[in-house]
Design a protein around this nucleic acid. Sequence first.
DNA 1: ACTGGTCATGTAAACGTTTACATGGAGGGG
DNA 2: CCCCTCCATGTAAACGTTTACATGACCAGT
Lengths: 343, 343
Amino acid sequence: MRPTIHAVAKRAGVSIATVSRLLNGSTRVSAETAARVRRAIEDVGYLPNASARGLAMSANGTLAVIFPKLSGPFFSELIRSAEASARETGYHLLVYGDSSIAEDAQERMLGLLATKSDGLILASENIGLDYIRDVQRWGLPVVVLGRQPDDISVDSIRPDNVNGAVKAVSHLIEHGYRRIAMITGRRTHLHAADREAGYRRALYDHGLPIIPELVISGAFDEESGYAATQLLLRRRPVPEAIFAANDEMAIGAMAAVREKGLRVPADIALVGFDDIAPARYVHPSLTTVDQDMYGQAQVAVQMLLERVNGSDAETETRLVPTELVIRESCGCKDVARDVASVV
Amino acid sequence: MRPTIHAVAKRAGVSIATVSRLLNGSTRVSAETAARVRRAIEDVGYLPNASARGLAMSANGTLAVIFPKLSGPFFSELIRSAEASARETGYHLLVYGDSSIAEDAQERMLGLLATKSDGLILASENIGLDYIRDVQRWGLPVVVLGRQPDDISVDSIRPDNVNGAVKAVSHLIEHGYRRIAMITGRRTHLHAADREAGYRRALYDHGLPIIPELVISGAFDEESGYAATQLLLRRRPVPEAIFAANDEMAIGAMAAVREKGLRVPADIALVGFDDIAPARYVHPSLTTVDQDMYGQAQVAVQMLLERVNGSDAETETRLVPTELVIRESCGCKDVARDVASVV
DNA sequence: ACTGGTCATGTAAACGTTTACATGGAGGGG
DNA sequence: CCCCTCCATGTAAACGTTTACATGACCAGT
């Protein structure tokens, strides 16, 4: 049997209330008593029971995050960052794969989850609006990451896709590229729409025309980037640069260009979006836009905690800044000198 | 105020004990009562309070995992797999970065952690033995992943490094390579020692000599792989193949070979270990050994649950099988046809 | 010296479950 | 027809905290 607060109280010759107060610092405890209690805690090896504490305070000091199946590269930063931010403010972090949620009868899952945590970060696109509504009805604060549910009032966080795309395309324009193609995604895709908007805006701002036949829709994977690029390479004149709405498609594009006997960036410059891990490793290394998942998760925890602490301000969408990462594939930089790029 | 079990009982016209029994299935409840209670649960939107339950049962249905700072590529699989396995058996998963543990006064951290979970998977090398001992003394079951603490009795899981290395090197030998170098790591490194042992065994089994000047120690990062390879390329005759104890060093090696004007695998074949994500993306794609982190985490959860459920069998070390992943860099395969390898 | 106010501490009532034990009704064997 | 058993259900005591309220000591101001 593990030592309880009673054991400590007995050993220190005080009441359990005093021990509890010392631990929580709610009221002052005299210095000598404090010392005695602290020794007693040491002596018996006492650790407060989280369940009992949670029950008494009706708050369990835990945040939950539901993560998506796919996001291989971002996953790590998402969890790491959320955990670090949570920990910093004294919270613990529970994690759930979205498939776990989907499989379980939703109610049961909701139940277990909802009563174990004080707030939820939903980072998956595969969870229905109904689920969000259920969680909210239950009274659990929620923030949504990388998604914007229209029909529902909920805080959300996402990368500043528009500005990221503007930066990427402007960079190309400013280095002399004029005929710039884009591989985009289905309009319904949150990131796709905004990134395409940024592309258009950059062209517009620099007085360049938008050429519809240079905008091709992909499916955010390598295959479709490859296929889209094959199409683009048949346009005449051939585009001078391609902006892909994500790195996977950019990598597919790279393969297509290479297969056609052309060189990146000499013949065609290439820029991606997201800065996934392999972007550093492909050859040439890929210029891309970092969507700062670490920052996003940080903001998510922060927003969530505001709600947990009772804020009832209007729900809001927070945009996290994106950063252009210049590597070799855009042809705007001296060849990098680090080992990775040599590969 | 959220509905409690009392609200349900009242609505169904039964006692709270009956509701509880229905929920936990400990004793039979008559069919009609069950139906009535179930409706009541629906009606009031009841969800059992996890803290109260945890307190009453002195078990909180939660496992914790402490993950390392570095393991970027494995991290994802570790968490995903652990979560999935835990979920499957009805447990929830708490995650902690090892830096969180280290920073907090250990006692405090131990406290919070220990009372929130029923068992701990320690996947970090940066946590001291003292911590493990403290956790064990407290009565929390622990299993250790990817590490073998000598001075302490604890369950552990790790990849079958020896056999992985044997497979890799044998593969090279069987395809005609004879003069095979190895980039290893400090002997104290868990994986390094075993992988080197596998290398030696493969050579020995095939009647090949071990040439000391072809075994160079690196530090498990790109830089050191690069440096080690520069040394190896000065040996005469130049090695026909290099086996690196991990993929990072293999990637560094690739850079060194290329810089010297040699080709992989035409002039020098190359095999790594771990199968990190970039291994698919480098050019040529890297033949390597998959250490199956998913499987390891699965086994870890399984072993941990045995302990949680009271097993007091002898502590044991479980080896998880490793698999050779043949790609281009070993020169033993027709050039792959998938998009990635074209890049 | 009396009153009122601080301050440190103790007492006891929550918090929402689970579960050992008690209760009472139904059914079956003698 | 009685007694024993079994089964469905209720009663109430844990589980280990936090915290409102009560208590009494001590001090200062009058």
